[in-house]
Computed example of a mutant assay.
Amino acid sequence: MSLAATVKGRLPPHGVSPRGGEGGHMTDQRAKAVLKEAVDAVVNSFAKHTQGYGRVNVVEALQEFWQMKAARGTELKNGPIVVYESVPSSSAPYVCFVTLPGGSCFASFQDCPTKAEARRSAAKIALMNSVFNEHPTRKITDKFSQQAVDDAKKSFEGPIEDEQDPSTSLGAFRFMLEANRGKSMLEFQELMTVFQLLHWNGSLKAMRERDCSRQEVLAHYSHRALDDDMRSQMALDWISREQEMANIIARELAVADEEIERARHAGRELRFPKEKKDILMLACSQIGPL
Results as ranks from 00 to 15, higher is better:
residue 158 G to I: 03
residue 262 R to K: 07
residue 207 M to S: 04
residue 206 A to K: 10
residue 173 F to N: 02
residue 258 E to K: 13
residue 211 D to I: 05
residue 192 M to S: 13
residue 190 E to P: 00
residue 224 R to P: 00
residue 189 Q to N: 14
residue 234 M to V: 00
residue 277 K to C: 06
residue 235 A to S: 02
residue 167 S to K: 09
residue 188 F to Y: 15
residue 226 L to N: 10
residue 165 D to S: 12
residue 274 K to W: 09
residue 271 R to E: 10
residue 185 M to D: 06
residue 186 L to P: 06
residue 228 D to P: 00
residue 162 D to R: 10
residue 231 R to V: 04
residue 156 F to P: 02
residue 240 S to G: 06
residue 191 L to R: 01
residue 200 W to F: 08
residue 265 H to N: 04
residue 157 E to G: 06
residue 192 M to L: 15
residue 273 P to L: 07
residue 226 L to E: 10
residue 189 Q to I: 05
residue 260 I to F: 05
residue 205 K to N: 13
residue 159 P to M: 09
residue 166 P to Q: 10
residue 241 R to K: 14
residue 263 A to M: 02
residue 245 M to L: 13
residue 214 R to A: 13
residue 176 M to L: 15
residue 159 P to W: 06
residue 244 E to A: 13
residue 199 H to N: 11
residue 186 L to Q: 13
residue 211 D to A: 14
residue 269 E to V: 07
residue 166 P to T: 10
residue 199 H to F: 06
residue 281 M to H: 02
residue 177 L to Y: 01
residue 175 F to L: 11
residue 279 I to E: 00
residue 243 Q to A: 15
residue 219 A to D: 15
residue 252 E to G: 01
residue 200 W to T: 08
residue 166 P to K: 09
residue 204 L to T: 08
residue 228 D to N: 10
residue 272 F to T: 06
residue 165 D to W: 07
residue 168 T to N: 11
residue 227 D to Y: 05
residue 270 L to Q: 12
residue 244 E to H: 04
residue 204 L to I: 09
residue 197 L to P: 00
residue 218 L to R: 11
residue 154 K to G: 03
residue 229 D to Q: 07
residue 210 R to S: 15
residue 215 Q to C: 04
residue 213 S to R: 04
residue 198 L to F: 03
residue 182 G to K: 05
residue 174 R to Q: 09
residue 279 I to N: 00
residue 266 A to P: 00
residue 155 S to F: 09
residue 245 M to E: 11
residue 174 R to E: 06
residue 217 V to G: 07
residue 239 I to N: 03
residue 254 A to N: 10
residue 205 K to D: 11
residue 254 A to K: 13
residue 272 F to I: 02
residue 248 I to R: 08
residue 256 A to Q: 01
residue 271 R to A: 12
residue 265 H to Q: 15
residue 239 I to D: 01
residue 206 A to H: 11
residue 225 A to V: 12
residue 279 I to V: 14
residue 275 E to G: 02
residue 186 L to D: 11
residue 275 E to Y: 07
residue 230 M to S: 01
residue 252 E to Q: 05
residue 169 S to D: 12
residue 171 G to Y: 09
residue 226 L to D: 15
residue 239 I to M: 12
residue 244 E to W: 01
residue 207 M to N: 04
residue 201 N to W: 05
residue 159 P to Q: 15
residue 159 P to T: 14
residue 210 R to T: 12
residue 234 M to F: 07
residue 217 V to H: 03
residue 188 F to H: 09
residue 249 I to A: 05
residue 261 E to T: 10
residue 270 L to T: 04
residue 179 A to S: 14
residue 233 Q to W: 03
residue 220 H to P: 01
residue 252 E to F: 03
residue 222 S to Y: 05
residue 165 D to H: 05
residue 182 G to E: 05
residue 196 Q to L: 09
residue 198 L to R: 02
residue 166 P to V: 13
residue 207 M to G: 04
residue 241 R to Y: 02
residue 258 E to C: 08
residue 216 E to I: 10
residue 252 E to I: 00
residue 170 L to D: 07
residue 159 P to E: 13
residue 216 E to Y: 11
residue 236 L to K: 02
residue 223 H to R: 14
residue 250 A to D: 10
residue 253 L to E: 15
residue 198 L to P: 02
residue 237 D to N: 12
residue 275 E to Q: 15
residue 220 H to I: 08
residue 207 M to Y: 09
residue 272 F to Q: 02
residue 155 S to W: 07
residue 164 Q to T: 15
residue 236 L to P: 00
residue 227 D to K: 01
residue 181 R to I: 04
residue 196 Q to A: 13
residue 210 R to E: 14
residue 259 E to Y: 03
residue 210 R to Y: 07
residue 221 Y to W: 15
residue 203 S to R: 06
